[in-house]
């Protein structure tokens, strides 16, 4: 398989993630969109490592990325829970408290 094949996969995954982020009104689905974007980045790093023959470095970066991903998701889930506690809703159209 060529490197371009993996690039096409990454582009498709990234478009799915961005589309989900743009067209959803649910905070949880927005988090899922971010997750899919991170999956695209992970695949890109591994593919670049494989084709440039620096797979050890790529794996090391991916492990760091996964740790960051978990922390981001845990904090985001905490914020979602907090928002739900105050607003009783996760629809972003109803979250207008910070409207400036």
């Amino acid at each position: 398989m060529s490197f371009w094949f993996f690039c096409v996969c990454v582009i498709m995954l990234a478009v799915i993630g961005v589309y989900c982020l743009l067209y959803t009104y649910s905070l949880m689905r927005a988090l899922i969109g971010i997750e899919i974007l991170i999956k695209a980045v992970t695949l890109l790093i591994i593919a670049v490592g494989y084709f440039s023959q620096h797979l050890a470095l790529a794996q090391s970066l991916v492990i760091t990325l996964i740790v960051m991903e978990v922390v981001i998701m845990v904090v985001a889930a905490g914020i979602v829970l907090g928002l739900h506690h105050y607003q009783k809703d996760l629809d972003i159209r109803k979250l207008r408290e910070l409207k400036g």
Binding site: T42, I46, L55, Q59, V62
Partner: peptide
């Protein structure tokens, strides 16, 4: 990833 020889990741 496993197919791309990155088993640890």
């Amino acid at each position: 990833m496993y197919k791309l020889n990155a088993p640890l990741a």
